[in-house]
């Protein structure tokens, strides 16, 4: 089992914005949605070794390692120009690494005294649910790590059987509702949302949904009807679920989607007016 590997696009050892307390965040590569406003679009795809980034790197910091099916990155010559990320046809990156459960555990051990827990994020982490299950069991049965809480940041576009694989080991899931109407959802993410709505309901029924977030995208999901249906859906969930309204920020999104606009104060105020109720407080960030 321990031979299992996951594609890890990055690790942040101290984050104060990925759940309660100081947390280590592990980012997984590959996603099954393609949101217009994705801020980490290079984590969407998997690398197919096309070699384009290798040819275009201005500092020759990349090399294809054909035998190991990976790209070797020379960090000492890289100037972080991000050319490779911007031009990858697969929305991927030459930087992500294959890591084993043991490897991740040793990274967590290093910072265990300073964190409340870990958060796995992506990409879409649940695509690697078998690996996650092993990772989570290793944490929760580890004498020095079992106090750590485990949060999963997911897009929810996942079948029920995958949730069941990890449910017992996870303290909370943080999901997005990107739209309620399937059409709008398709416009924003390229996919419909039946599975996502089911996931939200399912995790809430298991008392494992800790946070539900809505990114407000003017011209897409901020019509009165759309917000009202989202609001109705939110109110049907337990009051304990933390509801968060996130303003779309253009920083870091792909150039071809720069036509998107950030919500105005008024857009936010109108959405808050509809979404918030006595029982369901809304955090705006």
């Amino acid at each position: 089992m321990s031979e299992l590997q996951a594609n890890i696009s990055g690790i942040i050892k101290s984050s104060v914005i990925d759940g309660p307390g100081n947390r280590m965040v592990i980012f997984f590569q590959a996603c099954n949605l393609n949101c217009l406003y994705c801020h980490n679009s290079h984590t969407i795809g998997l690398c197919n070794l096309c070699g384009l980034c290798v040819q275009n790197c201005p500092t020759q910091s990349l090399k294809i390692d054909a035998s190991n099916k990976q790209i070797i990155h020379n960090a000492s010559t890289c100037t972080h120009c991000d050319n490779c990320l911007k031009n990858c046809p697969e929305n991927s990156s030459p930087f992500y690494k294959k890591m084993t459960v043991e490897h991740l555990i040793s990274e967590i051990e290093e910072v265990k005294d300073f964190i409340s827990g870990i958060t796995v994020s992506g990409g879409e982490v649940m695509l690697q649910s078998e690996f996650l299950k092993q990772l989570f069991i290793s944490i929760k049965t580890h004498p020095e790590l079992n106090h750590l809480s485990i949060l999963v940041d997911s897009n929810g576009n996942i079948d029920e059987n995958r949730w069941n694989q990890v449910l017992d080991w996870v303290d909370g899931f943080m999901l997005d509702i990107k739209a309620y109407s399937s059409d709008v959802h398709k416009k924003i993410t390229g996919h419909t949302n039946e599975k996502i709505l089911n996931s939200i309901r399912y995790l809430d029924s298991k008392n494992k949904l800790s946070e539900l977030r809505l990114v407000l995208v003017p011209g897409y999901n901020n019509s009165k009807e759309e917000i009202e249906t989202i609001s109705g859906f939110m109110q049907s969930l337990s009051p304990e679920v933390r509801k968060v309204l996130i303003k779309l920020r253009k920083h870091g999104i792909r150039e071809k989607y720069h036509y998107l606009s950030e919500p105005t104060q008024l857009d936010i105020a109108q959405a808050v007016e509809i979404l918030e109720s006595d029982k369901h407080k809304l955090l705006v960030i």
Binding site: N22, F114, I115, S116
Partner: peptide
């Protein structure tokens, strides 16, 4: 620390406790 920590004061607790443990 930067300002984002204000929304998450328990993060400071983690670091204080960790620092004292060390």
């Amino acid at each position: 620390f930067d300002e984002t920590i204000k929304r998450n004061p328990s993060a400071i607790l983690d670091i204080i406790k960790g620092a004292f443990k060390k």
